[in-house]
Amino acid sequence: MDRIPLVQGLLCRDERAWRQFIRDYSGLIYAVATEFHLKGADRDDLFQNTCLAAVRAIDTLRDPSMLSLWIYRIARNRAIDALRRRRPEVSLEQLDGAARSSAAMQENPSIVDELERLEDVARLRDALDRLDDRCRRLVRILYLTDPRPSYADVACREKMPMGSIGPTRARCLKKMRRLLKSLSGG
């Protein structure tokens, strides 16, 4: 769905908008906790604290079309704070992506890679939200559904001629590639 009405709802402190936001973005927030190797209560705390921090920080959201990236960064910062509390001897710079080669990260090099991947995922989701409805639906069905449906299934469900699914998806992915480039500032 278009993110503008959702963001307007969030800014107006509308309960329904906040419910939807937490539901829609829960996978991304949870993934950050997982990538930081947080488990059990720590992981749940990070999830809840990120949602709370989002409520308190919603006025800092400058670009409604970058909602995924915004919440990803809040979750990442909360996770860094949680790690620092557990290991106060590690400096913030060591945990921040800026100092990739730091000792803390060398201990767990996969965190940096995984976080970069997640940041890309957040960007992809923002790009997806900028696509037109038809493309967004098709990309969601073909690439974000597990297991992936066959073209025949998609043709039935979306009432599309089977022969047009391949070319349409290529066109949609091409648009998304352009959007991703613009979101990455390149």
Binding site: E15, Y30, A31, D44, C51, L52, V55, V121, L144
Partner: peptide, 27 residues
């Protein structure tokens, strides 16, 4: 590959509900 990575698992529904309630209380 990025599309495949974007298929993120959802947290338990009960956790989403708890986080939502706390967020709404903050609201």
């Amino acid at each position: 590959k990025l599309c495949a990575a974007a298929r993120l698992p959802q947290p338990p529904a009960e956790l989403i509900e708890r986080a939502t309630e706390r967020a709404l209380a903050e609201l």
